[in-house]
Design a protein around this nucleic acid. Sequence first.
DNA 1: CTGTTTCGTTTCGGTACCGTATCATTCAAA
DNA 2: TTTGAATGATACGGTACCGAAACGAAACAG
Lengths: 116, 116
Amino acid sequence: MPLHLRAGQALELLRSIALAEVRDDAPDLSLRQMAILLTIYLDPPPHTVRGLAAKLNVTKPVVTRALDTMGAKKLVSRHRDERDRRNVLVKRTLEGALYVERLGDVVIARGGELPL
Amino acid sequence: MPLHLRAGQALELLRSIALAEVRDDAPDLSLRQMAILLTIYLDPPPHTVRGLAAKLNVTKPVVTRALDTMGAKKLVSRHRDERDRRNVLVKRTLEGALYVERLGDVVIARGGELPL
DNA sequence: CTGTTTCGTTTCGGTACCGTATCATTCAAA
DNA sequence: TTTGAATGATACGGTACCGAAACGAAACAG
């Protein structure tokens, strides 16, 4: 059964998500970083810096910096493309998959608490 | 794998929200700021710096800085409490209400696909 | 080879944020 | 009236981020 959210419920869901991220000591990503991370984990590979920048409508340095930060947190990894060594291929990691999975759980859990 | 499907849709919802915020030239708030803003607009007043800090489990300077930033963007306003001049009362603005309403629209637009 | 284009990265100046600690103002109790 | 507590703002050192520009490496075209 599809959920038909009313405005107040939609905003409560959004606040629950934001709150869960704020309260936890989980790696708190900016919205940009979250959009990049979710794209990597939801869209089929391969993912390149340029491709991600174009898809999200941000500049390349933004992607590079986001990959720096999330790479330090082991949420993604970078590898040179051996077929075209100009390219960098962005790949998923176990830690990143767990983080994304937990993120989905938060949405589902909080969504389930909404009064319908 | 029905569980996987539901998780995937929850994450798509989350990505849609993040993407909408990234692509627009809308004031891009951090998750902390968003949690503060939504609390102001969803919970009944009055809202004080200390109260918000306690409710969100963050320090007072975090709230002060968030109010600085969002105040500059006219999303909230601050007023001294005349009954106890130590307090600062945080109030809603027209611009803030419009921003929050738009935020709810984004969730609703994508939320119909989220099964619960 | 020698440009030229395409990558991703780095640099630059500037802004915003963090947590801790401290501040001035205000109120309230001794 | 003086002392203490409470509130919100600010100083500090550090980190991360932004857009624009310049950069080196790699691929490509002639």
